[in-house]
């Protein structure tokens, strides 16, 4: 699914997949930090976002 999204033009760093156990609090924090950094660098998403007016 990630590949198809990327194929359609959704930037690679915008969608992330991870497997984190409920016991892995630090991994969770690290992954979320990493994701935030990458997504922030891309700026707001304009693709597949619906404009209602």
């Amino acid at each position: 699914m990630g590949n198809l999204l990327e194929h359609m033009g959704i930037e690679k760093d915008r969608v992330h997949f991870s497997w984190i156990s409920s016991a892995e609090a630090t991994k969770f924090v690290d992954v979320v930090k990493e994701i935030s950094k990458k997504v922030r660098a891309l700026g707001p998403n304009k693709k597949l976002v619906k404009d209602y007016n």
Binding site: E6, H7, M8, G9, E11, K12, K47
Partner: peptide, 17 residues
């Protein structure tokens, strides 16, 4: 044909679709 699209950057891909 897939390679051709894969070679595009994100913006061009998006525009293509």
């Amino acid at each position: 044909d897939v390679d051709e699209i894969e070679a595009m950057n994100s913006e061009t891909k998006w525009q293509h679709f």
